[in-house]
Write a protein that binds this DNA or RNA. Structure first.
Lengths: 196, 196
DNA sequence: GCCTAAAACGGACCGTGGTCCGATTTTGTT
DNA sequence: AACAAAATCGGACCACGGTCCGTTTTAGGC
């Protein structure tokens, strides 16, 4: 009497064709984005390039935003890995303040690098629950280590907010701020919050 | 030899039918939004309700985002007026710190009140150059008055960033933060930045 | 009032994101 | 190997934002 229960994880295992098509779609999306830029790539083009129907794309990724989020997810996972188990100063081993500043610098660089993709991913991207809560949790943890008093969840969010793509884009593209300046000013902000 | 120069302002004066239709469209949009919510309202529905063709809507407001921004603009103008010439503590007359905190509280309330509209207005909305630069300029001015040292343009942006709709929405709707708590925590943040 | 140029109108048309459902493939069972 | 159920596939189809262009309205000089 075998009971077909998915004992661990709620992903019931992907069928072979499904997995193959998912990979093909990610590869196709990467290639097309590299060729024409994020904004010019349509879902139908991706489907065609991957040799599947449009319906398949939406079944796998829910929406355009979902697909973009899936692309982002890979670099985001690498970033999380670097934080959890990578070398200092981003990874463990450096003191908290050093780690916090290094984290911010990396976040800024990453957000600028992937800004088009992040915007295209919309609510499914950086605002995605998993990503947001991980980074917020990390910052909260570092603030705790630093002995900061006050509403730590809010402070974490407040320190992360000016690193969001729309804000960075406004500063870099419209107000002509140099990235260097943003980094230094953010460091100053962090020190003030920590100093209490 | 009369030269038809628009001496002041570059708006060459709207034709009568154009003005009439613009008003009708704003009224129609207001009504439909009140009835069905921002997200359910289509441009075609607005046009129909106003008794004009779809093309007219886009000629007047450029895009859906532009129309939403126009709706927002009215309350945004009132807010700016309150800052420039309204009663304290938001308007002039109170001391700088009091004004800054009052400004933040008002901004939070306004952003939450109009969040659907602000999201629908996208880049044309809060991220709109005029609005952003006005509020940033005001905060910068108050920070100057408070004798804050450092990169004031960045600090102004950094204090405004956590008040943006996506951030507020995340906190209120997903993390179940009370608005009161956000307000108090933001005040704390401001004091730390000002304290240097 | 009439005439003309400029401006605005409106709805047919297009592209793209997203849905639906009959056809096809996979998987496990016997 | 054959079969059946379940999952997937794929492309026709839909809705909505946005564009285009022939037609109509306005403004204002005579």
């Amino acid at each position: 009497m075998p009971i077909p229960l998915p004992l661990v994880g709620d992903e019931p295992q992907e069928r072979r064709d499904a997995a193959r098509n998912r990979d093909a779609l990610l590869v196709a999306a990467d290639a097309l984005i590299a060729e024409q830029g994020v904004d010019a790539v349509t879902m139908e083009a991706i489907a065609a390039r991957a040799g599947v129907g449009k319906g398949t794309v939406f079944r796998r990724f829910e929406s355009r935003e979902g697909l973009m989020a899936a692309l982002l997810n890979r670099s985001e996972s690498a970033f999380q890995a670097a934080i959890i188990s990578g070398p200092p100063p981003v990874g463990p081993g450096a003191e908290a303040m050093e780690r916090l500043l290094a984290f911010g610098h990396a976040r800024i660089a990453l957000n600028l690098l992937h800004r088009r993709l992040i915007i295209a991913a919309g609510r499914a991207g950086t605002r995605n629950y998993a990503t947001v809560s991980f980074t917020a949790m990390h910052v909260r943890y570092l603030l705790t280590e630093l002995g900061v008093r006050g509403d730590l969840p809010f402070f974490a969010t407040a320190l992360l907010a000016p690193l969001e793509v729309p804000v960075l884009e406004q500063q870099v593209e419209i107000e002509d701020m140099q990235v260097n300046r943003i980094v230094e000013a953010w460091d100053d902000l962090v020190r003030r919050v920590v100093a209490g």
